[in-house]
């Protein structure tokens, strides 16, 4: 008999959904970051694009450190973070209970979901002129923009998360002697928490987007305002710094959510990173 012909195994790196060695994964990350950096560097240092439009990485880094060395810039960061958190918190305080109700009782669903679905498609940014008429250009106006941007999405997502809780889990608790109110607080709420955390994480991203929308239009403080101001003076490197700082803040908050989720819900199955 002939020996079995040795067939070459297909390349492991390109197997669909298959794990790859950690080193290769890190290499992928490094490659992506480096490519972006290299393209940026070539374009700016070789003056392919005018420096007024595309500053060199070096100028941006210098501008970054100059910015974070100034108290004024931290003031802008502070006020932006404040607005994001207030708008987000307000949306959570009202939106989460409403979402849970809508996902629990059909009656609440009928009262909340169709209306929310409708308003959700009205762009939050379009409300800005109206909000300025109502609330002026003070802090409450910016918080309101963020609130409107987050609230309706949040209600819908929380209602959906609540609806996805396994029905048998509720049935089981009934047969173990739980009354309705106990089913809500001892089963639905705890079962919901990990999903809720990732929903909040997502909404937090939206909050940052709407913050910038609000600050670009009408503000004299905050990160969006610094970007606007930089544009007026053609300080492109400061626009870069503003965007970069917002990205870093977002990333930090996102990581905090992820870590808190892991610490608070060690029992949750997968999808917690």
């Amino acid at each position: 008999m002939e020996p079995p012909t040795k067939k070459k195994r297909p390349n492991k790196l390109f197997k669909i959904r298959e794990e790859i060695p950690k080193g290769w994964y890190l290499l992928g990350i490094a490659f992506a970051f480096l490519s972006v950096f290299l393209i940026w560097s070539t374009l700016s240092w070789l003056n392919v694009v005018n420096e007024i439009f595309l500053p060199t990485p070096f100028t941006v880094v210098v501008a970054f450190f100059e910015s974070i060395a100034s108290a004024e810039f931290w003031g802008h960061i502070g006020i932006s973070v404040y607005r994001v958190f207030m708008g987000f918190l307000l949306a959570c305080l009202i939106g989460i209970p409403l979402g849970i109700l809508a996902g629990t009782f059909k009656f609440a669903e009928s009262a909340v979901l169709p209306l929310t679905e409708f308003i959700r498609y009205m762009p939050a940014a379009a409300f800005i002129p109206l909000i300025m008429v109502w609330a002026g250009i003070g802090e409450s106006a910016k918080i309101m923009v963020i609130f409107i941007g987050c609230f309706f999405q949040l209600v819908l997502m929380v209602a959906d998360d609540t609806l996805r809780i396994n029905r048998d889990l509720l049935s089981a608790s009934y047969t173990l002697g739980a009354k309705r109110i106990q089913v809500i607080f001892k089963v639905i709420v705890p079962a919901l928490l990990p999903k809720l955390m990732s929903t909040m994480r997502l909404i937090m991203g939206w909050a940052w987007t709407y913050l910038i929308v609000a600050e670009l239009v009408a503000a004299n403080s905050g990160l969006g305002y610094t970007i606007m101001k930089a544009q007026r003076f053609l300080d492109t490197e400061l626009i870069f710094v503003g965007i970069l700082v917002i990205g870093l803040l977002g990333l930090t908050i996102d990581r905090c959510f992820a870590i808190a989720s892991k610490k608070l819900f060690p029992w949750a199955e997968g999808g917690n990173h």
Binding site: D168, A172, S173, V187, L193, W267, E269
Partner: peptide
Amino acid sequence: FQSYTLFPWL
């Protein structure tokens, strides 16, 4: 039940 109805947080 046929589906697993353990309360996963407990």
